[in-house]
Design a protein around this nucleic acid. Structure first.
Length: 108
DNA sequence: CCGTTGACCAGGC
DNA sequence: GGCCTGGCCAACG
């Protein structure tokens, strides 16, 4: 049941830590789990204080496209390319420009 | 209090 | 694949 967290930031980071290698979660799955809007999930990740420390690159859009990626307030084609590289390096399978459905955890 | 903005989602064309 | 619309919740000025 999607109960609202008191500290969505903390819960998002906790979820990131329990994603196994070679898997990703969607913004929607997190939003349903925490009872917040998917937009807010992205907003939280964009304000990630430690982009190198937390595997925020393991969050993708529901259609399998990688979505955005912000580092130090910068988001552009280069950072999204980094996101894809990190994903493939951790074992995530790509089908063209999208993440394979098999690599996506629809529920947490 | 109100309007705008977001690393989104689902549905339609 | 693209574009648009309505909805979502919180943050910000």
């Amino acid at each position: 049941m999607a109960k609202k967290s008191k500290d969505p930031y903390k819960d998002v980071y906790r979820i990131l830590r329990k994603i196994p290698n070679g898997k990703v979660v969607t913004y929607g799955a997190i939003s349903r789990k925490l009872g917040i809007s998917p937009r807010y999930v992205g907003f939280i990740l964009s304000r990630n204080d430690h982009p190198e420390k937390y595997p925020c690159f393991r969050v993708v859009r529901s259609d399998g496209s990688v979505g955005g990626y912000t580092i130090n307030g910068k988001s552009n084609s280069r950072t999204s390319a980094q996101k894809r590289m990190k994903l493939s390096r951790t074992g995530v399978i790509f089908e063209g420009s999208k993440v394979s459905r098999k690599s996506i955890l629809d529920d947490i």
